[in-house]
């Protein structure tokens, strides 16, 4: 009987050594160590042995059982490590299943960003009307009829007449139209950001568009200063570009501010060394700004001398073009999905 048992062990070891997959190993384990396995069978035959030999044989069977279990465990580990070495080829380069997801227009994406930046600085974001009266677009902003500064804003006029103040109707040339609209309804403190569509009567080419988007910001309170304006602009640009942006401030003229300034940002394309983007100047004109003119407060019906305020205007589409390096402004209104899909 002892011989028989030893043979079983040898056979088992032999068979295990020839196996190379887990399934066969599992079958072998069942064959030898299972409930109806060979060792069990032998163990049941133990009663046929003389009383004296039984403990010895029983011990042997147990010993073999433990040995086999150990061998099987070792084999298992070796099969695992073998399997992980001989990797089966899985082709993850096959294309994914098509998932249709839409794209926000780049103007919207930058507009959302700008909105968040100004909201974080305590500015309320508005949009305002696009069909506007001459009053809110020009006259209330210290640009009476025939003011030469109107030349800068070539204007689309509308045939139909307005009932308000008997004023001519036009398409707003800037979002500054909201300055007096907001002020005549509300008292300071005001921190307003107006983002919206504007129109200029000029032929389109690579760099000119008759339809554009402008960000106008203004703040009015009893002690608003130029220093506050510069702080606001600097932080806006830093937040938008996610790094410290150098700016340059020059005098500028806009009839609805006094003092008036223009702010240039250092060209990010060439770090100020001069390139085609900045026309070799190292600087890019980015916005016009200044302290709100007393005539504008007068138009809004604010008491003389009580408040001061700043205002600034930035071209949203110019920011979009600079951020994404778009070389032709006409893409923005092309409605071409090959363009939209890039953003």
């Amino acid at each position: 009987m002892e011989e028989e048992i030893k043979k079983i062990k040898e056979k088992a070891i032999e068979e295990i050594s020839q196996i190379s997959d887990l399934l066969s190993l599992e079958n072998l384990k069942r064959k030898y160590l299972g409930r109806k396995g060979l060792l069990r069978e032998i163990l049941q035959k133990i009663t046929q042995l003389p009383e004296k030999e039984r403990p010895k044989i029983g011990k042997l069977i147990n010993q073999i059982k433990t040995d086999l279990e150990k061998i099987i465990e070792e084999k298992k580990t070796s099969i695992y490590s073998l399997e992980s070495k001989v990797e089966k080829i899985f082709d993850f380069t096959l294309p994914p299943q098509k998932i249709f997801f839409g794209h926000l227009h780049p103007i919207t994406q930058v507009k959302n960003e700008v909105t968040e930046i100004f909201q974080s600085m305590g500015f309320e974001v508005l949009e305002g009307p696009e069909v506007e009266t001459d009053w809110y677009n020009f006259e209330a902003l210290n640009m009476p009829i025939e003011h030469p500064a109107r030349d800068v804003w070539d204007t689309f006029y509308i045939n139909q007449k307005s009932k308000i103040k008997n004023s001519k109707l036009l398409l707003r040339t800037h979002t500054s139209n909201m300055q007096v609209r907001v002020m005549e309804k509300r008292k300071p403190p005001l921190r307003i950001c107006v983002i919206g569509k504007c129109f200029r009567h000029e032929a389109t080419d690579q760099t000119h568009e008759h339809t554009l988007y402008q960000i106008e910001g203004f703040a009015v309170d009893e002690k608003i200063s130029l220093a506050n304006l510069i702080y606001t602009i600097k932080n806006f640009l830093n937040a938008l570009y996610k790094k410290e942006i150098k700016i340059r401030i020059r005098p500028g003229y806009f009839p609805f501010v006094e003092p008036g300034i223009e702010i240039d940002m250092r060209c990010e394309n060439c770090q100020g060394r001069g390139c085609s983007v900045c026309k070799n100047s190292g600087w890019i004109e980015i916005l016009g700004a200044g302290m709100i003119h007393p005539k504008v407060f007068e138009s809004a019906g604010y008491p003389k001398g009580k408040y001061t305020g700043f205002a600034f205007g930035v071209g949203l589409d110019r920011l979009v073009m600079m951020l994404y390096k778009i070389d032709d402004i006409r893409w923005l209104h092309s409605g071409d999905l090959r363009f939209i899909h890039q953003f």
């Binding site: 600097k234 401030i249 020059r250 005098p251």
Partner: peptide
């Protein structure tokens, strides 16, 4: 201001009341 030089002005944050900011429901 321009003779003083705009570039020399130190930026300063706005002082003022911290008002509740409505977000235009349409926007």
């Amino acid at each position: 201001a321009r003779l003083y030089g705009y570039q020399k002005i130190n930026p300063k944050p706005i002082d003022g009341k911290l008002n509740f900011l409505p977000y235009d429901p349409l926007l």
